[in-house]
Protein backbone atom coordinates (compact mmCIF):
# COMPACT_ATOMS: atom_id res chain seq x y z
CA UNK A 1 0.00 0.00 0.00
CA UNK A 2 2.87 2.41 0.74
CA UNK A 3 3.73 3.06 -2.86
CA UNK A 4 0.14 3.32 -4.06
CA UNK A 5 -0.54 6.92 -4.86
CA UNK A 6 -3.57 6.21 -7.01
CA UNK A 7 -7.01 7.35 -6.00
CA UNK A 8 -8.77 4.40 -4.43
CA UNK A 9 -12.46 4.65 -5.22
CA UNK A 10 -13.41 1.85 -2.86
CA UNK A 11 -12.96 1.25 0.81
CA UNK A 12 -10.21 -1.12 1.86
CA UNK A 13 -11.32 -2.94 5.01
CA UNK A 14 -9.03 -2.17 7.97
CA UNK A 15 -8.30 -5.85 8.42
CA UNK A 16 -7.53 -6.43 4.75
CA UNK A 17 -4.34 -8.32 4.04
CA UNK A 18 -4.12 -7.08 0.48
CA UNK A 19 -5.51 -4.02 -1.30
CA UNK A 20 -7.12 -6.19 -3.99
CA UNK A 21 -9.42 -7.84 -1.46
CA UNK A 22 -12.44 -5.69 -2.39
CA UNK A 23 -12.22 -7.16 -5.89
CA UNK A 24 -12.26 -10.73 -4.69
CA UNK A 25 -14.74 -13.04 -3.03
CA UNK A 26 -12.70 -13.42 0.12
CA UNK A 27 -15.23 -15.89 1.50
CA UNK A 28 -14.02 -18.29 -1.21
CA UNK A 29 -10.36 -18.16 -0.25
CA UNK A 30 -8.07 -20.06 -0.31
CA UNK A 31 -8.20 -20.45 -4.08
CA UNK A 32 -7.41 -23.69 -5.88
CA UNK A 33 -4.33 -22.58 -7.83
CA UNK A 34 -0.97 -24.24 -7.19
CA UNK A 35 2.11 -22.52 -5.75
CA UNK A 36 4.00 -20.91 -8.61
CA UNK A 37 0.95 -20.76 -10.90
CA UNK A 38 0.66 -17.48 -12.77
CA UNK A 39 -3.13 -17.13 -12.85
CA UNK A 40 -3.26 -15.25 -9.53
CA UNK A 41 -0.69 -12.81 -10.85
CA UNK A 42 -2.91 -12.05 -13.83
CA UNK A 43 -5.88 -11.53 -11.51
CA UNK A 44 -3.81 -9.04 -9.55
CA UNK A 45 -3.06 -7.19 -12.79
CA UNK A 46 -6.73 -7.30 -13.72
CA UNK A 47 -7.79 -5.74 -10.41
CA UNK A 48 -5.20 -3.04 -10.95
CA UNK A 49 -6.60 -2.41 -14.44
CA UNK A 50 -10.14 -2.17 -13.05
CA UNK A 51 -8.91 0.30 -10.50
CA UNK A 52 -6.90 2.39 -12.94
CA UNK A 53 -9.64 2.45 -15.55
CA UNK A 54 -12.07 3.67 -12.87
CA UNK A 55 -14.56 1.12 -14.10
CA UNK A 56 -17.98 1.01 -12.43
CA UNK A 57 -17.61 -2.45 -10.95
CA UNK A 58 -21.39 -2.97 -10.87
CA UNK A 59 -21.33 -2.78 -14.65
CA UNK A 60 -18.44 -5.15 -15.24
CA UNK A 61 -19.32 -8.80 -15.84
CA UNK A 62 -16.76 -11.57 -16.09
CA UNK A 63 -17.34 -14.81 -17.96
CA UNK A 64 -15.12 -17.88 -17.80
CA UNK A 65 -15.17 -21.31 -19.35
CA UNK A 66 -13.77 -24.46 -17.75
CA UNK A 67 -10.25 -25.12 -16.52
CA UNK A 68 -7.83 -23.54 -14.08
CA UNK A 69 -8.28 -20.06 -15.56
CA UNK A 70 -11.98 -20.85 -15.80
CA UNK A 71 -12.07 -20.46 -12.04
CA UNK A 72 -11.22 -16.75 -12.20
CA UNK A 73 -14.88 -15.76 -12.55
CA UNK A 74 -15.63 -17.53 -9.31
CA UNK A 75 -13.16 -15.47 -7.33
CA UNK A 76 -13.96 -12.09 -8.84
CA UNK A 77 -16.37 -9.99 -6.81
CA UNK A 78 -18.27 -8.96 -9.93
CA UNK A 79 -21.31 -10.34 -11.72
CA UNK A 80 -19.55 -13.52 -12.69
CA UNK A 81 -20.36 -16.54 -14.80
CA UNK A 82 -18.62 -19.89 -14.83
CA UNK A 83 -20.05 -21.41 -18.00
CA UNK A 84 -19.46 -24.61 -19.95
CA UNK A 85 -16.23 -25.79 -21.52
CA UNK A 86 -15.32 -23.59 -24.49
CA UNK A 87 -18.50 -21.55 -24.46
CA UNK A 88 -17.58 -18.47 -22.45
CA UNK A 89 -17.50 -16.34 -25.61
CA UNK A 90 -20.99 -17.17 -26.92
CA UNK A 91 -22.42 -16.78 -23.41
CA UNK A 92 -20.69 -13.40 -23.17
CA UNK A 93 -22.03 -12.50 -26.61
CA UNK A 94 -25.61 -13.02 -25.44
CA UNK A 95 -24.97 -11.13 -22.22
CA UNK A 96 -23.47 -8.16 -24.05
CA UNK A 97 -26.16 -8.03 -26.73
CA UNK A 98 -28.97 -8.19 -24.20
CA UNK A 99 -27.41 -5.63 -21.90
CA UNK A 100 -25.05 -3.39 -23.92
CA UNK A 101 -24.19 -1.14 -20.98
CA UNK A 102 -22.23 -3.98 -19.40
CA UNK A 103 -18.47 -4.19 -19.82
CA UNK A 104 -18.07 -7.90 -20.54
CA UNK A 105 -14.73 -9.56 -19.91
CA UNK A 106 -14.01 -13.15 -20.94
CA UNK A 107 -11.29 -14.68 -18.81
CA UNK A 108 -10.27 -18.21 -19.71
CA UNK A 109 -7.47 -20.57 -20.62
CA UNK A 110 -5.85 -21.62 -23.88
CA UNK A 111 -7.47 -25.06 -24.08
CA UNK A 112 -10.90 -23.63 -23.37
CA UNK A 113 -10.69 -20.70 -25.78
CA UNK A 114 -8.72 -22.26 -28.63
CA UNK A 115 -9.50 -25.98 -28.75
CA UNK A 116 -13.10 -26.63 -27.77
CA UNK A 117 -13.97 -22.94 -28.04
CA UNK A 118 -11.88 -22.03 -31.07
CA UNK A 119 -14.80 -21.58 -33.43
CA UNK A 120 -16.48 -19.09 -31.10
CA UNK A 121 -13.27 -17.09 -30.75
CA UNK A 122 -12.85 -16.50 -34.47
CA UNK A 123 -16.51 -15.65 -34.99
CA UNK A 124 -16.65 -13.16 -32.12
CA UNK A 125 -13.49 -11.53 -33.52
CA UNK A 126 -15.03 -11.49 -37.00
CA UNK A 127 -18.11 -9.73 -35.63
CA UNK A 128 -15.90 -7.37 -33.62
CA UNK A 129 -18.14 -8.14 -30.66
CA UNK A 130 -17.39 -5.76 -27.82
CA UNK A 131 -15.72 -8.34 -25.57
CA UNK A 132 -12.38 -8.17 -23.76
CA UNK A 133 -10.85 -11.62 -23.98
CA UNK A 134 -8.01 -12.44 -21.63
CA UNK A 135 -6.38 -15.80 -22.28
CA UNK A 136 -4.04 -17.18 -19.67
CA UNK A 137 -1.88 -19.46 -21.76
CA UNK A 138 -0.06 -22.08 -19.71
CA UNK A 139 0.50 -24.18 -22.84
CA UNK A 140 -1.36 -27.17 -21.44
CA UNK A 141 -4.62 -28.54 -20.05
CA UNK A 142 -3.76 -28.03 -16.43
CA UNK A 143 -7.02 -28.80 -14.63
CA UNK A 144 -7.17 -32.29 -16.10
CA UNK A 145 -3.53 -33.17 -15.51
CA UNK A 146 -1.34 -31.63 -18.19
CA UNK A 147 -2.49 -32.95 -21.54
CA UNK A 148 -1.48 -31.56 -24.94
CA UNK A 149 -3.26 -28.34 -25.94
CA UNK A 150 -3.41 -26.67 -29.35
CA UNK A 151 -0.88 -24.24 -27.89
CA UNK A 152 1.64 -26.81 -26.63
CA UNK A 153 4.93 -26.22 -28.48
CA UNK A 154 6.66 -28.98 -30.43
CA UNK A 155 8.89 -31.41 -28.52
CA UNK A 156 7.19 -30.71 -25.18
CA UNK A 157 6.31 -33.76 -23.09
CA UNK A 158 2.71 -33.89 -21.87
CA UNK A 159 0.41 -36.46 -20.30
CA UNK A 160 -1.00 -37.34 -23.72
CA UNK A 161 2.25 -36.79 -25.65
CA UNK A 162 4.64 -38.88 -23.56
CA UNK A 163 7.16 -39.00 -26.44
CA UNK A 164 6.87 -35.33 -27.31
CA UNK A 165 4.40 -33.11 -29.15
CA UNK A 166 4.77 -33.15 -32.92
CA UNK A 167 1.61 -31.32 -34.04
CA UNK A 168 2.23 -27.64 -34.86
CA UNK A 169 0.79 -25.23 -32.27
CA UNK A 170 -1.50 -22.27 -32.82
CA UNK A 171 0.05 -18.81 -32.82
CA UNK A 172 -2.75 -17.15 -30.87
CA UNK A 173 -1.90 -13.54 -31.63
CA UNK A 174 -1.72 -14.23 -35.38
CA UNK A 175 -5.02 -16.08 -35.20
CA UNK A 176 -6.67 -13.20 -33.35
CA UNK A 177 -5.40 -10.63 -35.82
CA UNK A 178 -6.44 -12.69 -38.84
CA UNK A 179 -9.92 -13.20 -37.42
CA UNK A 180 -10.40 -9.47 -37.01
CA UNK A 181 -9.59 -8.50 -33.41
CA UNK A 182 -9.35 -4.75 -32.78
CA UNK A 183 -6.61 -5.11 -30.21
CA UNK A 184 -4.03 -7.87 -29.79
CA UNK A 185 -1.26 -8.02 -27.20
CA UNK A 186 0.88 -10.63 -25.52
CA UNK A 187 2.65 -10.48 -22.17
CA UNK A 188 3.93 -12.97 -19.64
CA UNK A 189 3.29 -13.07 -15.91
CA UNK A 190 6.73 -11.52 -15.52
CA UNK A 191 5.43 -8.32 -17.19
CA UNK A 192 2.95 -7.32 -14.51
CA UNK A 193 3.00 -3.57 -15.15
CA UNK A 194 2.73 -3.91 -18.91
CA UNK A 195 -0.03 -6.49 -18.54
CA UNK A 196 -2.03 -4.29 -16.17
CA UNK A 197 -1.64 -1.39 -18.58
CA UNK A 198 -2.79 -3.52 -21.53
CA UNK A 199 -5.79 -4.68 -19.53
CA UNK A 200 -6.61 -1.08 -18.69
CA UNK A 201 -6.33 -0.17 -22.38
CA UNK A 202 -8.77 -2.84 -23.46
CA UNK A 203 -11.25 -1.83 -20.77
CA UNK A 204 -11.30 1.56 -22.46
CA UNK A 205 -11.30 0.30 -26.03
CA UNK A 206 -14.36 -0.66 -28.06
CA UNK A 207 -14.57 -3.89 -29.99
CA UNK A 208 -13.09 -7.34 -29.73
CA UNK A 209 -9.84 -7.16 -27.76
CA UNK A 210 -7.47 -10.00 -27.05
CA UNK A 211 -4.64 -10.32 -24.56
CA UNK A 212 -2.58 -13.48 -24.33
CA UNK A 213 -0.71 -13.94 -21.07
CA UNK A 214 1.95 -16.61 -20.94
CA UNK A 215 1.82 -18.20 -17.52
CA UNK A 216 3.71 -21.00 -15.78
CA UNK A 217 2.17 -24.27 -14.75
CA UNK A 218 4.98 -25.59 -12.55
CA UNK A 219 2.93 -28.58 -11.41
CA UNK A 220 2.33 -30.08 -14.83
CA UNK A 221 4.12 -28.30 -17.64
CA UNK A 222 7.45 -27.13 -16.21
CA UNK A 223 7.94 -30.16 -13.96
CA UNK A 224 7.26 -32.68 -16.69
CA UNK A 225 9.68 -30.86 -19.01
CA UNK A 226 12.39 -30.29 -16.38
CA UNK A 227 11.98 -26.54 -16.69
CA UNK A 228 12.12 -25.81 -12.98
CA UNK A 229 9.56 -24.14 -10.77
CA UNK A 230 7.57 -20.90 -10.91
CA UNK A 231 10.57 -18.77 -10.11
CA UNK A 232 12.70 -20.46 -12.77
CA UNK A 233 9.94 -19.72 -15.26
CA UNK A 234 9.97 -16.04 -14.27
CA UNK A 235 13.70 -16.02 -14.96
CA UNK A 236 13.09 -17.70 -18.30
CA UNK A 237 10.39 -15.16 -19.21
CA UNK A 238 12.71 -12.32 -18.24
CA UNK A 239 15.59 -13.67 -20.30
CA UNK A 240 13.63 -14.92 -23.33
CA UNK A 241 11.13 -12.09 -23.74
CA UNK A 242 11.65 -9.32 -26.20
CA UNK A 243 9.28 -6.35 -26.34
CA UNK A 244 8.41 -5.63 -29.96
CA UNK A 245 5.33 -3.45 -30.17
CA UNK A 246 3.74 -3.63 -33.58
CA UNK A 247 5.67 -6.76 -34.55
CA UNK A 248 4.01 -8.72 -37.36
CA UNK A 249 2.04 -11.39 -35.50
CA UNK A 250 3.15 -14.00 -38.04
CA UNK A 251 6.64 -13.65 -36.56
CA UNK A 252 5.47 -14.18 -32.98
CA UNK A 253 4.98 -17.95 -32.81
CA UNK A 254 6.10 -19.51 -29.54
CA UNK A 255 8.55 -22.38 -29.21
CA UNK A 256 9.58 -24.51 -26.28
CA UNK A 257 12.56 -22.44 -25.20
CA UNK A 258 13.06 -19.78 -27.87
CA UNK A 259 12.37 -16.08 -27.91
CA UNK A 260 9.02 -14.83 -26.58
CA UNK A 261 7.92 -11.76 -28.51
CA UNK A 262 5.73 -9.63 -26.27
CA UNK A 263 4.05 -6.28 -26.74
CA UNK A 264 1.03 -4.74 -28.35
CA UNK A 265 0.76 -6.00 -31.91
CA UNK A 266 -2.59 -4.69 -33.10
CA UNK A 267 -4.58 -1.61 -32.08
CA UNK A 268 -7.03 -0.67 -34.81
CA UNK A 269 -10.53 0.67 -35.12
CA UNK A 270 -13.11 -1.44 -36.86
CA UNK A 271 -16.84 -0.75 -36.59
CA UNK A 272 -18.37 -2.82 -33.83
CA UNK A 273 -21.37 -5.13 -33.92
CA UNK A 274 -23.92 -2.58 -32.72
CA UNK A 275 -22.58 0.12 -35.03
CA UNK A 276 -22.94 -2.16 -38.04
CA UNK A 277 -26.34 -3.44 -36.91
CA UNK A 278 -27.73 0.05 -36.39
CA UNK A 279 -26.30 1.35 -39.65
CA UNK A 280 -27.72 -1.52 -41.70
CA UNK A 281 -31.15 -1.44 -40.09
CA UNK A 282 -31.43 2.33 -40.31
CA UNK A 283 -30.50 2.17 -43.97
CA UNK A 284 -33.07 -0.48 -44.80
CA UNK A 285 -35.85 0.21 -42.29
CA UNK A 286 -35.49 3.94 -41.65
CA UNK A 287 -37.78 5.17 -38.89
CA UNK A 288 -39.37 1.77 -38.48
CA UNK A 289 -36.16 0.50 -36.87
CA UNK A 290 -36.37 0.18 -33.11
CA UNK A 291 -32.82 0.25 -31.79
CA UNK A 292 -32.43 -2.46 -29.15
CA UNK A 293 -32.32 -1.07 -25.64
CA UNK A 294 -31.43 -3.11 -22.61
CA UNK A 295 -33.52 -5.96 -23.88
CA UNK A 296 -36.28 -6.76 -21.47
CA UNK A 297 -39.63 -7.69 -22.97
CA UNK A 298 -41.73 -8.13 -19.85
CA UNK A 299 -39.25 -8.39 -17.05
Amino acid sequence: MNETTLEVPYEIPVDAHNPVEPFLRMDRMPHIWCPGCGIGTTVNCFTRALLDSKADLDKVAIVSGIGCTGRVAGYASLDSFHTTHGRAIPFATGLKLANPELQVVVYSGDGDLFAIGGNHFIHAARRNMDLKVICVNNLTYAMTGGQTAPTTPSHVISATSPYGVFEPAFNLVALAEAAGASYVARWTTYHVKQLARSMEEVLKKKGFCFIEVLSPCPTLYQRRNKMGDGLDTMKFYKQASKVRHGAPTSECALTKSGEIVVGKFVDRDRPGYFELLNAQMTETLGERYAEPEVVCGNC
Binding site: T93, L95, G297
Partner: peptide, 24 residues
Protein backbone atom coordinates in the same frame (compact mmCIF):
# COMPACT_ATOMS: atom_id res chain seq x y z
CA UNK B 1 -31.79 -8.93 -31.12
CA UNK B 2 -31.59 -11.89 -33.41
CA UNK B 3 -28.12 -13.26 -33.92
CA UNK B 4 -27.26 -16.20 -36.12
CA UNK B 5 -24.53 -17.99 -34.23
CA UNK B 6 -21.75 -20.21 -35.55
CA UNK B 7 -23.36 -23.43 -34.29
CA UNK B 8 -26.04 -24.79 -31.98
CA UNK B 9 -23.70 -24.94 -28.99
CA UNK B 10 -23.19 -21.21 -29.33
CA UNK B 11 -26.89 -20.49 -29.90
CA UNK B 12 -28.00 -22.47 -26.87
CA UNK B 13 -25.58 -20.71 -24.51
CA UNK B 14 -25.89 -17.22 -26.02
CA UNK B 15 -29.56 -17.21 -25.06
CA UNK B 16 -28.56 -17.93 -21.47
CA UNK B 17 -26.12 -15.03 -21.43
CA UNK B 18 -28.99 -12.89 -22.70
CA UNK B 19 -31.29 -14.14 -19.95
CA UNK B 20 -28.79 -13.19 -17.23
CA UNK B 21 -28.47 -9.85 -18.99
CA UNK B 22 -32.20 -9.35 -18.49
CA UNK B 23 -33.87 -10.65 -21.67
CA UNK B 24 -36.40 -13.33 -22.31
Amino acid sequence: IFIQMEDELAASIAIQGAVWGGAK
